[in-house]
Amino acid sequence: MNTKFSIKGKLVGFALGILISSNILGGLIGLLIGHILFDRLATNDNEEYFIEDSLYVENTNIITFIIKLCYGLVNQKEDILLTEVDTIKQFLRKEFGIDKLYISKVDLIFSNLMDDKSNLNVDSVIHSINHYCSYDEKQKIIELLFVVAVSDKNISKEEIDYIHNVYHKLKVKLNDYLKIKNKFIKEELEYYKILGVNESATDAEIKTAYRKLVNLHHPDKVKEADYDKEKFQQIVKAYNELKKFKRIH
């Protein structure tokens, strides 16, 4: 409670009571009214500061968790590019409505993580995000990871594996994950089409489809006149790429 504000309220109430009633009793009544009214104002004032401070702490925590998750992604490469850090800032502003006060912390958090890599525990970060963030926000985080991964025009197997692991632990539904993923890795959809399976096909279903197509188009299985080299190469490439994307063994 704001003590100075409360004392001033009592004094003002006492003085007004004396002026209006011209006696001590009126002053005491005024003091009581001043105590009630100004104490309530002081309490409300402090509550507003507390709420603002709590929101600041919560927003700062969420930003820290998201940035740590992004750092874990870009750390899959040898170098962290400035464009990747800028991409994170822009996405946080646009999709999360984070203002400049919080955005300014991105560079500092990245710097601290680079100085002390032991400070990054991805599983702990994911646990915190599951606690603080809504399902929609978690989908946005997955999208952010893809945005960062493709910001250098080249998404690696390690980055795909990392994002796949995060999506699974954030408990994002497979269909929602695939919708996000397909915005950035369009060629993967084509690989599914070549093998004649849908995106949610299991590893076993993909392997079965691949083997059937290989048996149909392999040069040892068809007449030379019927052999389509380009078609066969597409089938092999599609399967090999899906092995990478889906981590099929």
Rank of each mutant, 00 (worst) to 15 (best):
Y56A: 05
S54V: 07
I126Y: 10
F110K: 00
C133H: 07
L81T: 05
K105Y: 05
I51P: 01
I98F: 04
F91P: 15
S134C: 10
T60L: 14
K100Y: 05
V85R: 01
S22N: 15
L73W: 03
D99A: 05
D39R: 13
L92E: 15
S134W: 12
S128L: 10
I126G: 10
F38A: 10
G27I: 02
D86Y: 06
F96M: 04
D79H: 10
I29G: 00
E78V: 14
F110V: 07
L73N: 02
E78Y: 13
V122D: 04
D136S: 14
D123A: 07
I109A: 04
I51F: 14
R40Y: 15
K94N: 12
E95L: 02
N130D: 07
D107R: 11
D123S: 09
I109C: 09
I80L: 09
H127I: 13
Y71P: 01
N44S: 14
L73G: 02
S124Y: 14
G34H: 02
D45N: 14
I29Q: 00
C133Y: 06
Q90S: 15
S21G: 02
N46I: 10
E137W: 11
K68V: 08
D53P: 04
I62Y: 14
E95Q: 08
N23D: 13
K105Q: 07
V57M: 03
E52F: 13
G26N: 03
I36W: 08
E58T: 11
I63C: 15
L55S: 07
Q76N: 06
N75A: 13
I80G: 06
V57D: 08
L101P: 06
S21M: 11
I129C: 12
C70E: 01
G30N: 01
Q76H: 06
G34W: 01
N75S: 14
L81N: 08
L82K: 10
I80P: 08
E137Q: 15
V106K: 00
G97P: 05
T43D: 14
T83H: 02
N119E: 12
E78M: 11
D107V: 10
D39W: 08
K89L: 12
I24M: 11
V57L: 07
T87E: 13
Y49C: 04
F96E: 06
C70Q: 02
K77W: 09
Q76L: 06
D86P: 09
F65G: 08
F38C: 12
D116A: 01
S128H: 09
L55Q: 14
I24T: 10
C70D: 00
D39T: 15
T60P: 01
I36A: 06
V57E: 13
D39V: 12
L73R: 04
E137D: 15
H131P: 07
E84M: 06
K89E: 15
F96Y: 11
V125M: 10
K68P: 04
V125C: 13
T43F: 15
E47H: 05
F65R: 08
K94G: 03
I24H: 05
H35G: 08
Y102T: 09
N46R: 13
N61Q: 13
V74N: 02
F91C: 11
F38Q: 07
T87D: 12
G34P: 08
H127K: 15
L69E: 03
E47K: 08
E78W: 10
I88G: 03
F38Y: 13
N46T: 12
G72P: 03
E58S: 14
S104Q: 07
I29H: 00
F38P: 11
I129P: 07
I36F: 11
N59V: 03
G72C: 05
S134F: 14
N119Y: 03
D53Q: 11
